[in-house]
Write a protein that binds this DNA or RNA. Structure first.
Lengths: 239, 239
DNA sequence: TAGTGGTCTAGACCACCAT
DNA sequence: TGGTGGTCTAGACCACTAT
């Protein structure tokens, strides 16, 4: 347990995920939850607001907190997950093939993306993701070697994020993402089982540490028929 | 002004958008903002946390709140905006062509999506979105006629959400969204300028009122080369 | 050590919903 | 009317960063 409200959040979220709190039913009132968790109302409210933000519940003034039919809130576009984490949450059989792993002088475009001087040395990692026996995603990662000094095939096969967080003890903060559709390139055709598809879904991602330093640029190239993203969106209040 | 913290949020967000607070610089401290806005610290913190959630700032303990280089946080995938709102925020020349507007017995699949009995009567609205002179999006909307009793061509040309919120005084709460790539259908080819593209990006959306009732199912079909979504994602803390 | 943000509390008052 | 959630406050204590 890190703090009370994430603890309460996790306990309630788990019960909703497991169906112990059924969709359509109401949670106990905030007053009741205060007693159950022996805490103050603001702390309960922090947990409940977080649950509402993530699509677990809907709070209605005067009524209570209604459990929603989860959108698999685990597979969120707005979450920043590694491939390994996503695959595990989806219960997929996944394998990673490291096709390329080099510390090299980066192309100008990559240096530009990483906001470092042209001619800088970066880690270039190309990995193919095999899911249920099919090679359907090509991940092209570029990492600022000033922050991530060492990488290995084993690390890339497992999870770079896990290595950064657990071994390097750096904290990943946030990312900017973009989705576009593009024509497939020679590399996609060579490394993926394209099954005749001529375009790919490209997810571009800029990933930052907690202290706002940019350390990674990634292009995740998906075979179009296997691409699927879900999300939960709230209507911005106001006006 | 509805309440203090959204007011403070909007004021700071506007200044960041306009560049009056430059990326990389720090906001005033929470203590300082308390004095500036004549309010308590928790109220300031609510506003700042909201700004952090939406990618405007990064809070660092012991240091302060750093202004981020905005990802055009206005064009977020995780936001629930109408086409009109999106187009306005992007400063695009947009036109809407209402191709179909009928109150009719819905197909079983649609009834299923809207969670109503087979054979129910629903509003079916097909609209083509023209942006910068090109017809590139086909929106197929289905609305539960028990909640939305009246619609007109004028309403559909303008904004259904605006009509629902301002005229019907209903509050739109949240939506579940999904993105997939599919082969284009005869209707896409007929109504859109496909320029030889043979697939479309389909955004499926289930939209709910504030009180958790489902009132709309939408399929938004985009020409692939014009599809672009951006988002800001935070790494879930914990574990 | 001083200043920053992070957590938590106990209580007030208000708005909305049910009865 | 009583119960629910929504806003706001003043203050305490802690953790981290600077110096």
């Amino acid at each position: 347990m890190q703090n009370k409200y994430t603890d309460i959040y996790n306990k309630i979220a788990d019960k909703i995920r497991k169906g112990q709190f059924a969709p359509g039913t109401k949670l106990a009132s905030e007053h009741e939850l205060m007693k159950q968790f022996d805490t103050s109302r603001e702390t309960i409210r922090k947990a409940l607001n977080h649950l509402a933000q993530n699509g677990f519940i809907q709070k209605i003034q005067g009524k209570g907190s209604i459990v929603l039919d989860a959108v698999k809130p685990d597979l969120r576009f707005s979450e920043l997950l590694s491939f390994k984490e996503s695959a595990e949450k989806m219960n997929k059989h996944a394998r990673t093939h490291v096709e390329e792993l080099n510390l090299e002088v980066a192309e100008d475009e990559i240096c530009n993306h990483l906001q470092i001087p042209a001619g800088s040395v970066v880690w270039k990692v190309h990995r193919v993701r095999e899911i249920d026996g099919e090679r359907i995603i090509l991940d092209k990662d570029y990492l600022n070697s000033s922050y991530v000094k060492h990488l290995s095939k084993a690390i890339c096969e497992k999870s770079i994020y896990q290595y950064i967080e657990q071994e390097l003890d750096m904290v990943i903060g946030f990312a900017k993402k973009e989705i576009v559709i593009e024509d497939s390139q020679e590399e996609d055709d060579r490394l993926l089982e394209m099954n005749g598809h001529t375009n790919v879904v490209v997810v571009r991602k800029f990933v930052y540490f907690d202290d706002t330093t940019l350390f990674q640029y990634t292009e995740s190239r998906h075979r179009p028929d296997k691409f699927n993203y879900v999300d939960f969106a709230r209507r911005a209040p106001g006006k």
